[in-house]
């Protein structure tokens, strides 16, 4: 069965990969934290303007993979990455890559809302400010408003833009963090369990937002909730013990998984 599944995968994968325009492509990615290997030969293609969900049990390496995509692992001591990771065909780990510029192109939203201890306005203006995206105050105002509108937060906070961001509710804070990421006009947005600290209503709002954002951005989302993966994503990759077991159309992964480990995970037998 297992051999059969592997065969099926190698048969169909090149076809699937060829059909989609790759925004990010990972080939043979290994990640070590000191002596411990966290990812083993990960191959994954992430198409543009889709939501790709990374699912899998805790400690399976999905967050590690996500953090490779904007080189957030660089700030962790003892983290080594090998293999090829490309964004629009350019090697992410090439020596001449400007990490700061890369992170402006690949934005990130974290598990716990982490607004800066500043006003709502300053939070959104932070990125544009450090990258010099606005020439004057009016342009900055415009960026802040557009970003908040795209994150679906503007109407809720328009009369208190200069209040401290920590006064917002958890769900509002998370949408603020999304607005903050959007404000630097990224091409890709990475989301690391963005709803795990939110209540169901706030989660629904953020999921709705993710679906809208797909029009403009490529989104990679790590989630523990399979329902969430099914609701928001078009493609899904299942990670297990540091390997990508299976990836493909979300509907196919959830209705007709090719690997029995995927089957076991989505039916709740492992994880």
């Amino acid at each position: 069965m297992s051999l059969n599944a592997l065969n099926m995968r190698t048969d169909t994968d090149p076809m699937a990969t060829a059909n989609i325009a790759a925004k990010i492509r990972a080939v043979g990615v290994d990640v070590h934290y000191h002596d411990k290997q966290a990812l083993f030969q990960v191959d994954l293609t992430i198409p543009a303007n889709t939501v790709t969900a990374l699912i899998g049990p805790s400690g399976c390496g999905k967050s590690t993979f996500l953090r490779c995509l904007n080189r957030m692992n660089d700030i962790i001591d003892g983290c080594r990455i090998s293999g090829a990771l490309t964004l629009d065909g350019r090697d992410l780990y090439a020596p001449d890559i400007d990490v700061v510029a890369l992170r402006a192109r690949v934005g990130m939203v974290f598990q716990k809302p982490n607004p800066f201890p500043k006003s709502i306005y300053e939070n959104v203006a932070f990125g544009p400010h450090i990258h010099g995206l606005a020439d004057d105050r009016a342009a900055l105002d415009h960026i802040v408003e557009t970003s908040l509108r795209r994150a679906g937060l503007f109407d809720e906070v328009s009369d208190r833009l200069h209040d401290t961001a920590t006064s917002l509710s958890g769900g509002q804070q998370q949408r603020l963090c999304i607005a903050r990421a959007i404000a630097v006009e990224p091409e890709v947005i990475l989301m690391d369990e963005p709803c795990s600290a939110l209540d169901p209503i706030a989660t629904a709002k953020v999921e709705e937002l993710i679906d809208e954002l797909r029009q403009r951005y490529t989104i990679v989302i790590v989630t523990h909730s399979m329902q969430q993966a099914a609701r928001v994503s078009q493609r899904t990759a299942f990670f297990h013990l540091g390997e990508v077991v299976e990836d493909g159309e979300t509907a196919q992964i959830f209705t007709d998984p090719r690997d029995e480990r995927t089957q076991a995970y989505i039916t709740g037998r492992i994880g």
Partner: peptide
Amino acid sequence: VTLREGSYGLGAMKSETILRV
């Protein structure tokens, strides 16, 4: 550390992160 990561994730340099966040 989440605050620092938030800042790095927006493409801030280390000194900018320290000074502004």
